[in-house]
Design a protein around this nucleic acid. Sequence first.
RNA 1: CGGAGCGUAGCGCAGUCUGGUAGCGCGUUUGCUUCGGGAGCAAAAGGCCGUGGGUUCAAAUCCCACCGCUCCGACCA
Length: 570
Amino acid sequence: MKWTKALIQTLRENPGDAEIDSHKLLVRAGLVKKMAGGLYTYLPLGLRSLKKVENIVREEMNRAGAQEIVMPILQTAELWKESGRWDSMGPNMFKVKDRARHDYALAPTAEEAVVDVARSVISSYRQLPVTVYQIQWKFRDEIRPRFGLMRSKEFLMKDAYSFDTSMEAADGSYEAMYEAYKRIFSRCGLAAVPVEADTGDIGGKSSHEFHVLAEAGEDGIAACQCGYAANLEKASRRAPAREDESCPEAEVVPTPGAKTIEEVSRFMGMPASKFVKSLIYMCDGKPVMVCVAGDREVNEIKLKHFLDVASVELATPADILSASGASAGSVGPVKPLDASMRIVADFALKGAKGVMVGANIDDNHIKNVDLARDTKIADEDYADLTIVAEGDICPKCGAKMSDKRGIEVGHVFKLGVKYTEAMKAVYKTKDINEEVMVMGCYGIGVGRTMQAIIEQSHDKDGIIWPSSVSPYQVVIENLDPSDAHVTEVADRLEAELEAKGVDVIVDDREERPGVKFKDADLIGFTVRVVVGAKGLSNGGIEVKRRADDKSKTKVVPVEEALAVILDSLK
RNA sequence: CGGAGCGUAGCGCAGUCUGGUAGCGCGUUUGCUUCGGGAGCAAAAGGCCGUGGGUUCAAAUCCCACCGCUCCGACCA
């Protein structure tokens, strides 16, 4: 490809609306063009990289034995109503009507569609196990699209679905995908780590996310040196040992005007950790008091799972008053107004003595509280309910964990029979019984993966593409396009590289060398080859990998150039 | 959905407070000179100043409504 024939536009300045480096570079390097928030055109260079990521995903899916299909983006409402997600996905899903006023969804994911296929195509145990996948555009009405391709309304996603005869067999399909994912990200030059995750809207019994660690990541992750890693939504910890001294009788103390833990803590001159923060949640409509140490935060997802309820939300001021007898800020587990209210507590509070709690009387707290002595919290109502923080104890090995941030590039779920049961996807067993298929699902954000590569691999001058996903693996800088000899050498090299299956672009623009170098660095082609009149008369051409600094530039005779370039791509 | 900010040339921005009919840099086009890390000079093209309404002799500028974009937040007592 000749640069003068390619549709390439680079920008000198950062776009005004980009916050993170990878987003700025996507736009400056001319890979994408924004139409509106969360909607992007892939320009030729960007599409080339996207397709390369896509092909790596496809090859590894095929290698893992999955079979490619394509399902409709426009899907009937009936299908979504059957699983119950027409309502439960709520405003996250784009819904449209046809001219007959029938409802459709623009697919945000495709469990329903694939189960519909499975139940009609699969009828016998002989056809199982099977894993299918598609690489298809998905639509989600995100609350807040941001960071370029990171979170957009329309995105390319690889979604795979496995069907098995049993939970044990499904574990095997899951393992195969897990291994394929590791290969995919490694081939993209990404260091992606698997982390335990909550299953969220998709449901199912367990899941792992694959994260690229990056400061700009949207997710918090707790990680331990032993290899344990989990999304903060899911991460657990060991309760620290408590050896509280027994304390004198509890005593009500006035704390006028002090509402927040911070204010009461300052007022009393006691650290936040010696307070018990008591929050009232409405859980499936009933009030539940949740107690955690003053310096910790409730993990609502853990709470939801522990109580086994569908919804948890913080109570309104009126509900707080009727349940506790006080307003927020003075609530506590000792004798609330509603004596029937369930009280649960974080397991780190088990055995807490000498702590301070709200008194259920406005502007009053109780000090010297011994939770076992002074409250009615049942032993089984102590559970892991807080968000893990830096320095918490790893549940696996007991060492201290640290906080990281990550970009979620892939997610694998063990779904069990959640969809297959609701949609009656059954098969005949050997002895002619009907059984429900066991399912798994596995997603990769293709565009997001591409942006994660940029986020992880760039410097002040631009992107540094790994060879496997570079829009062109090699750029040949023809510094003197009007010089017939120089041009002949550059073009011959281009042809030789293409014959070897290398993607190459020749910068044949009538531009000053500085402009060409800046553009090559910005776009980040893996290898740069410089062919110029001066160089040719001084011994040859230059070969430099984008990732290396100038001192590693190799000057090689023309006849050796091909071999050196091919070697640099490895 | 709540709060804040912003919509002016392809991109980045000034001008708005204090109304008088639009400007800078980059990019683009042409010419000359330059030519190994974003060149210089000269000329030129390119704007319903987000949309609609209002005030005024006169509106990018003041008022109202709407649309769009960006950031922050979405109840942790």
